[in-house]
Amino acid sequence: MNRLSKIIGGVFVLFGFSWWGLAVYPYLSFASLKENVDPNTKEVAPPDLPGAAQQGYRVYAANGCVSCHSQFVRDKSEGADIDREWGKRRTVARDYMKDGQVFLGVSRFGPDLTNIGLRQKDAQWFYRYLYDPRLFNPDTTMPAYRWLFQDQAIAGQPAQNALKLEGADAPRPGHEIVPTAEAEALVAYLLSLKRDYALPEAPAPQE
């Protein structure tokens, strides 16, 4: 009995220690983070997420994009992330303070997406990419997400965000392919992924 309570007590103490150190401590230390306000320009960093992106991260989560894409840029000393132009500087804790969910990811089967909104600024590009990544690289392993789009008859004017598709992908005559609400939210989220503001704790490394 005595031995049991010693074991249980030991387990609680040792386990609780790791819980405190790796879960509670980061929580407490990140809870005090404040946004950075530039004294001259009064610019707030990181900026608030646009409303549409707030929905989009759920689509990103639900579809396991994180199984193949990471979202953090390591320091120059840690890897070639910056040289690959996935970011001008490493990401720091404040970059994520306003994110509804942080998708660090442990797999780079696809490229890092921390700054995808800087590399591609056009929603149409994203729609076409998600609809058929093979338009851009015939050998790619990025899955197509055709179900995020719908085929509809053109009523009067073609829809503004209809996909510009040619060849095998082109819709039937009189029809058009348009993004669903989910696709729109997802792309709004992807477009919002840009960490191009300056934070004093993460200066861009000198060339």
Binding site: L22, P26, Y27, F30, Y96, M97, Q101
Partner: peptide
Amino acid sequence: KIGGMAEPAIHWWYFGCLISL
């Protein structure tokens, strides 16, 4: 629904526990 970097901290702390404990 803890957000920010505390989230991956807790998340990956958990993974260690899942495997090792």
